[in-house]
């Protein structure tokens, strides 16, 4: 059924957002603003993903759902669509006993998005934290974490991603290991690296105490093609974070806010920031010359369509 819908959709839309296959890093460097997709997890839960289940297991059981989500974001006007591989590193998958399925989970996730978007959007391989704390704070050895990222990235690159999104990082060392893994596997594959910051009375810091300045310096050092922030904040804080990055870095920036911070109503997570509100505030991101604007938790295709509209203005 998924394939049929795709065909219908393709027929209904003559033009595409991506007219050529210019490598993403060139478009990033050109100063253009690109629109990325919104939440995958939020949409998976809406479609009945069991809360305790591994989100990546959906890729094996219901790839058609991932195709549908990718199509919704493409239709909303996203230039870049992410894969359902946020927790797809073997270290993280091991928590669900799925480490042995690393290749399959990553490759099939790429295939699902590619099937939906063809070459009308860039496919971004999502790489999230390994879920363990590195030594000396925890038990995870840097070489093991690097190896885990490397294995995931090899699968993603092999399956044909256009870029890698290293995201939601709180530990700079871990983020750098992930970026290094991408560059070592494929120096030609563009990689964005974004971290999650909390507002404190003393400014923005990740849970592990990484400042925007430190993040910018560290991620630049390992060769990230774009740097920035995703998750953890609504659009207003994200504008401040983007400004802080812009003050210390000339690299292309990537910013993906949540639709606000969740609160609970009737036992369900509710994100309050509307597409209109997010888009209005996001004009400041365009003014700052942010290269990639997208959404994280709680954002929907409607949010991305609204962002598309202000970017096109």
């Amino acid at each position: 059924m998924g394939l049929m819908r795709q065909t219908q959709w393709t027929a209904s839309r003559a033009s595409s957002t991506l007219s050529d296959r210019t490598p993403l890093d060139q478009r990033l460097a050109s100063g253009e603003t690109l629109v990325a997709d919104g939440a995958i997890g939020t949409l998976l839960f809406e479609r009945g993903l069991d809360p305790g289940a591994c989100p990546e297991s959906v890729t094996l059981s219901h790839p058609e759902v991932l195709e549908e989500i990718a199509r919704l974001y493409l239709e909303a006007g996203a230039d870049i669509i992410g894969t359902n591989t946020f927790g797809g590193s073997p270290l993280k998958l091991a928590a669900y006993g799925l480490a042995d399925s690393t290749d399959e989970i990553n490759a099939r996730a790429v295939t699902a998005v590619r099937k939906a978007v063809g070459d009308r959007a860039y496919v971004a391989g999502s790489v999230g934290p390994c879920g363990k704390l590195l030594t000396p704070y925890g038990d995870a050895k840097p070489e093991d974490v690097y190896g885990s990222f490397r294995r995931q990235v090899e699968s993603l690159v092999e399956a044909g991603v256009d870029c890698i999104f290293v995201e939601t990082m709180i530990d700079l060392t871990e983020a750098k290991l992930a970026v290094r893994a991408v560059k070592d596997v494929s120096a030609a594959t563009p990689v964005t690296a974004s971290m999650t910051f909390d507002a404190t009375p003393n400014g923005f810091f990740t849970i592990m105490g990484v400042s925007v300045e430190a993040a910018a310096a560290g991620l630049t050092e390992v060769g990230a093609d774009a740097i920035g922030s995703n998750c953890g904040n609504g659009i207003e804080n994200m504008v401040q974070i983007a400004r802080a990055f812009r003050n210390v870095s000339q690299l292309p920036l990537t910013i993906q806010p949540n639709a606000g911070l969740p609160h609970i109503a009737n036992g369900k997570a509710v994100y309050d920031e509307t597409p209109a509100f997010m888009a209005e505030q996001a004009k400041a991101l365009v003014s700052l010359g942010v290269s990639v604007i997208g959404g994280c938790c709680g954002t929907t295709p409607e949010h991305i369509a609204a962002l598309r509209a202000i970017v096109d203005e």
Binding site: Y137, N202, G209
Partner: peptide, 15 residues
């Protein structure tokens, strides 16, 4: 609590 130190400092202190 005052955000003058962060999680890594707490983890090392605990150790």
């Amino acid at each position: 609590k005052a955000h003058t130190i962060f999680l890594p400092d707490v983890l090392l202190a605990a150790k």
